[in-house]
Simulated assay, not measured.
Amino acid sequence: MGERNYLIEGVSGTGKTSVCRELQRRGFHAINGDRELAYQGDPETGEPMDGRTHEHHIWRVDDVRALVASHDEPVTFFCGGSRNFPKFIDLFDGVFVLDVDLDTLNRRLDGRPEDEWGARPAERELVVRLHRTKEDTPRVGTVIDATTPLASVVDEILRQVMLSPST
């Protein structure tokens, strides 16, 4: 959707949804990929699958490609986590990986409602492991300290892409 497109990734609880909302509030075009592009499917084939598992939380690659190909906006931020990001990461002008310390992560997960992913004990264990190993977040990209206040996190992302952090 943008002339320039950026991916904002990170493990559950690092603030991707909050960053998306704040970018939108500031007037930037931001897509919540976890809500607008995601479904349960095989990360390799894209074949839809039943259930609700982290390993099968993927984005519709054709939709991502179409949105990136459109130049209706000067910049678009794609916010969220996807197990099939290797299928489309090369389409982005930049990647930001939100990161927090374990205490912050645990506090944020504590505040989640039970029906939100990461709130259940088994899901939380997985989130903590993924936080430690970084195995399902992009290895390329700029790491952003997401323990700072939300406004500062968004300001830093905008600074990195050389946009004025208007509020």
Rank of each mutant, 00 (worst) to 15 (best):
F85V: 04
R4A: 08
G33T: 11
L130D: 13
N32S: 13
K16M: 08
F28E: 01
R129S: 13
P165W: 09
K87M: 14
S152Y: 03
L7R: 02
P43D: 11
E73F: 06
V153M: 08
D62H: 08
D99H: 10
F96I: 11
V127I: 15
G111K: 02
S82N: 12
H29A: 08
G80D: 02
G80E: 03
R21H: 09
R26W: 03
L105Y: 12
R4H: 06
L67Y: 07
D90C: 02
G81N: 11
S70M: 07
I144R: 13
W59R: 00
G46I: 05
I8V: 15
K16L: 06
F85H: 13
R139G: 14
P149N: 06
V153G: 10
E125T: 15
N32G: 05
E3S: 13
G51R: 00
P74K: 07
E123N: 05
P74Q: 07
L163H: 04
G27F: 14
T147A: 07
A66R: 13
F85P: 07
R132S: 01
L98W: 06
Q40F: 02
I157D: 08
P48Q: 10
G46S: 04
D99P: 00
L23P: 03
M162S: 15
T45D: 11
R83D: 05
L102T: 02
D99W: 03
F92I: 05
P43S: 11
G15Q: 04
D110A: 12
E116V: 13
G10Y: 09
I89F: 07
D93E: 11
G27N: 13
S152F: 03
T17E: 01
H71I: 00
L23M: 06
L98N: 08
H54C: 01
S18E: 15
T147K: 02
P74R: 09
D101C: 05
P43T: 14
S166C: 00
L102D: 05
P74A: 01
P138V: 12
R21Q: 06
R129F: 14
R132I: 01
Y6Q: 01
L126S: 11
D103P: 05
R120N: 06
D99N: 10
R52G: 07
L158Y: 04
E3M: 14
T133F: 10
E3H: 11
